[in-house]
């Protein structure tokens, strides 16, 4: 990301202005900040759901702005796995089918899963095992699972087919402290195993110690700057 500027509405104060960030393969980033500071916006920009008003966002050397909307959709599922705070799984589908979802839409993810596990199903099962999901749960519809189990299944899905980027938006916020730690360890271990970069957003700074990199997003009133007659409140970010 270089010199990215993004505002939710034209003429309003931008969330990001002149923002740059480089994430390399295998790096685990902890991104934190207060609510509404723009953490989720950053993830949406990184995933190409949102496009910057100015600046360049490249994912694996691909400029996301030059792709069409459906091209970005395709590119996103080919190269990124997502874990959200909750509601990751389709309730009526089995855990295994939920895990296999990206392989249904992305040929690349499917092929990489095959390459890793012989066929996508075995690779999904391997990941579920690695994430501590008992075999008895695989055929259960997702709605029967506890939240911790659901998050682990979501992690298995995000990792399936070795996408280069894992985006986790507060995946542990619905879990209690013990389970947070266990989940985080499993996730980091599997990301390390697949060599994926991890963008992990949380407002809980206690988790930050386990990450290789930290990014803090916060509003620091550095005074408003007049530009073209419009007031821009500036966001600054600090990288530790």
């Amino acid at each position: 990301m270089r010199d990215v500027r993004f505002a939710w509405e034209k003429g309003r104060a931008p969330c990001f202005s002149g923002f740059s960030l480089t994430v390399k393969a295998g790096e685990h980033w902890f991104i934190h900040g207060a609510s509404g500071s723009g953490k989720s916006t950053l993830l949406n920009l990184a995933a190409g759901v949102l496009l910057p008003d100015a600046g360049v966002i490249r994912l694996l050397d691909q400029d996301l702005s030059v792709l069409s909307a459906s091209g970005r959709d395709r590119f996103r599922v080919d190269h990124a796995g997502f874990i959200f705070q909750q509601f990751n799984l389709i309730p009526w589908m089995s855990v295994l089918d939920n895990t296999l979802l990206p392989c249904r839409f992305s040929r690349r993810r499917r092929q990489q899963a095959e390459a890793a596990g012989g066929d996508a199903r075995s690779e999904a099962k391997r990941l579920l095992c690695a994430l501590d999901m008992e075999e008895a749960l695989w055929r259960q519809p997702a709605m029967k699972l506890s939240i911790g189990q659901q998050q682990r299944a979501a992690a298995a899905r995000a990792l399936l087919g070795r996408p280069e980027l894992i985006i986790a938006d507060e995946p542990t916020s619905s879990l209690d402290a013990d389970r947070q730690a266990i989940f985080l360890e499993l996730l980091r271990h599997e990301c390390a195993a697949s060599g994926a970069a991890l963008l992990f957003v949380s407002h809980d700074e206690r988790l930050a110690g386990r990450f290789t990199h930290r990014l803090r997003i916060g509003r620091q009133e550095t005074g408003s700057r007049k530009q073209n007659g419009v007031d821009y409140a500036q966001y600054t970010t600090t990288v530790d």
Partner: peptide, 13 residues
């Protein structure tokens, strides 16, 4: 939610 999950897993609009 279901539609958003599909979107996050590669379904286009």
């Amino acid at each position: 939610r279901e539609l958003a999950i599909l979107r996050a897993n590669g379904a286009r609009p």
